[in-house]
Simulated scan of single mutants.
Amino acid sequence: MTLEETALARLTGNRLLYIDMLEVLRRGTAEVRRAGPDGVLLYDPPSEVWFLDAETPAVLEEMLPLMEGCTILTGHQMWYKDRLAAHFGFQTEQICHQAAWMNNQMPTVPAFDGEIRRLDQSWAEWAEEHYSHSFGGVDYMRDAIDRGMLGAFVAGKPAGFIATHIEGSMGMLEVLPQYRRKGIGEVLLLSMTAFCLEQGVYPYGQVWWDNEPSLALQRKVGMTLSEELIFWLF
């Protein structure tokens, strides 16, 4: 088998846990740096993210020399988080559940007192200003709009938005304070799920392990949450 075939054989055994790795392989941007029945290492040049799956310490130590210059990574087993943080000098971490649409049918988007529109580049600065977890600046928002950013409008006024991150996960879900608790987050999440499916993209996201409102929203709309935790290091 090729390296990619070996990687797919390993990753499809737990599609929910590895759906982010499967997505970068599906779209053809990932480089398979190591693949075996005991672990897979991918590098995705567009996002500059390393994706790790290692079953044993020996596999992890085999991967480390291959990751020279790593500045951001996501690991799929928690046991090596601290080892990687120490090795690369990372000081910021995010611990998440994978959340994915695992149903065979398109989601049903509930009706609400407004409409969903695809946003164009004229909305980039507005989205950057209103995103509560902004980190990439206006240029990141412009790229997200190119990939497909959806906005919710109520009485013609913007109420919230959602997009996908560069590595493929659904995110940037923001509902303006005055429009919260009206079901708009649910509408946006299901609308983006449908949009991803229409584009042939795997609809998945990552939710911080202790963000109970977001985890509840994922369950409400029919997303499947991984029992396992994954982590990001920056």
Rank of each mutant, 00 (worst) to 15 (best):
T2S: 13
T2F: 15
E5F: 08
T6K: 14
T6V: 12
T6H: 03
L11N: 01
T12L: 02
N14D: 07
L17C: 08
I19G: 05
L22T: 08
V24H: 01
R27Y: 08
R27K: 12
G28S: 01
G28C: 07
A30E: 01
A30M: 04
A30L: 11
G36V: 02
G36D: 10
D38Q: 15
D38T: 11
P45A: 03
P45R: 09
E48T: 06
V49F: 09
A54D: 09
A58S: 04
L60N: 01
M63V: 11
P65R: 05
L66G: 08
M67L: 08
C70V: 13
C70S: 12
C70K: 14
T71C: 03
H76T: 14
Q77T: 02
M78L: 12
M78A: 11
Y80N: 03
K81N: 05
L84M: 12
L84Y: 01
A86S: 11
F90T: 00
I95T: 13
Q98E: 14
W101M: 02
W101A: 03
M102H: 13
Q105M: 01
Q105G: 04
P107Q: 11
V109I: 10
F112P: 05
D113E: 14
D113I: 12
G114Q: 10
E115C: 15
I116H: 00
I116V: 12
R117E: 14
R117G: 15
R118P: 02
Q121Y: 04
S122R: 14
A124H: 03
W126S: 09
E129Y: 12
H130Y: 05
Y131R: 09
H133P: 00
S134C: 11
V138Q: 00
D139Q: 10
M141Q: 09
D146Q: 05
R147H: 09
M149Q: 15
G151H: 06
A152H: 07
K157V: 07
A159V: 07
A159F: 06
I162K: 13
I162G: 06
S169Y: 01
M172T: 14
M172Y: 15
L173R: 05
L173N: 12
R180A: 08
R181F: 07
G183M: 01
G183K: 00
I184H: 05
G185W: 02
T193V: 11
A194Q: 06
Y202H: 03
P203R: 03
Y204R: 08
Y204A: 02
V207G: 09
W208E: 13
W209F: 11
A216D: 15
G222E: 15
G222S: 12
G222M: 05
M223E: 06
T224C: 00
E227K: 14
L229E: 10
F234D: 09
F234V: 10
